[in-house]
Design a protein around this nucleic acid. Structure first.
Lengths: 164, 164
DNA sequence: CTTGACTCTGTACACGACTACAGGGTTTAC
DNA sequence: GTAAACCCTGTAGTCGTGTACAGAGTCAAG
């Protein structure tokens, strides 16, 4: 998306091109409402304004938005991203924190994938079994009822919420 | 959980034991509010009531709840579960439908796991790279900025929501 | 000078699966 | 007989990540 915009490489001093919100939205692909939402949420800081109150972004906002999008894709929540940015702005390298978050994220991912492999296996087995013997007696559906749940039921709170 | 309750095996005729909501909740591990919520949502049907309006469940509700929980763990949404139950009660075997849903679910799972493997790889690589060369210049965090996003950006709507 | 596109603020809604509470009535144990 | 523990209905809130409006002001083109 931003590739098409052709930002004149690193011609820093050239023209500090002020972007109105609609332009920033189109160039970043982020959506006007989302931009304002990010600002409210403290991810963007307040931009300059025209006399009449219109937001005027510098092109830096595009980098910031790209950063946010990448971090999101990597599984960071907006809160985590906010913290990272805040730490950075407080001078300390956020990378210690980021590294920690990344490690946690990796562990979660592994656990999650382990679960999913298990689900997949159960589902596939149930499906195969069901297909070669048709439906059984008067139950709702053997396909589901037959399936045993192996995952340790350490989650006391009912079915685990799958966020994200 | 239900194992402790010891339901006297298949002593069908014995005593049709009516359960008040708190009992049903404890025996099923489902939570009173959730039981009422399921009823409102059409997953349970209305139970008998005492004169004073208390819900009186039969033990069958425990099977139904176990069914719901298993289906949830297998990745079915409450809406899908409702449909399955409804079809069943309309006489037609829901298994055709279930089978379809399961197939879809399997495909989704595979796709999702593929994505996750990719994320994992990216994260782990970025982490390793970062650890051996420390943080770079003045950016927010090389660890994230460096990471390239490979997933086709066919998702126009900003970052894909990861439900479930 | 008007029309239409743009922007502003503030609030409400969306989703999924519940959870919490208020303000009652009922049952049970001592 | 009274207090604790239970149950009822109905409404509202939670989490995260935005969308969608309403009602108003601003800007550029014709």
């Amino acid at each position: 998306m931003r590739n098409q915009v052709k930002r004149e490489a690193a011609t820093k001093e050239a023209r500090p091109a002020r972007l109105k919100i609609g332009e920033a939205s189109k160039m970043s692909g982020v959506g006007i409402e989302a931009l304002r939402f990010y600002e409210r949420s403290g991810l963007l800081g307040r931009p300059a304004r025209t006399e009449s109150g219109y937001r005027l972004y510098t092109e830096e906002v595009l980098d910031r938005l790209a950063f946010i999008k990448r971090a999101q894709v990597l599984g960071f929540s907006l809160d985590e991203i906010k913290q990272i940015i805040a730490e950075r702005e407080a001078g300390q390298s956020p990378c210690v924190h980021v590294r920690e978050v990344v490690r946690r994220r990796l562990a979660e991912l592994d656990e999650r994938m382990r679960e999913m492999r298990l689900y997949r296996k159960e589902l596939a087995e149930a499906l195969a079994e069901w297909e070669q013997q048709g439906d059984a007696e008067g139950h709702i559906c053997g396909l589901i009822e037959k399936t045993e749940i192996h995952h340790a039921d350490t989650r006391t709170q009912g079915v685990a919420r799958r966020k994200r």
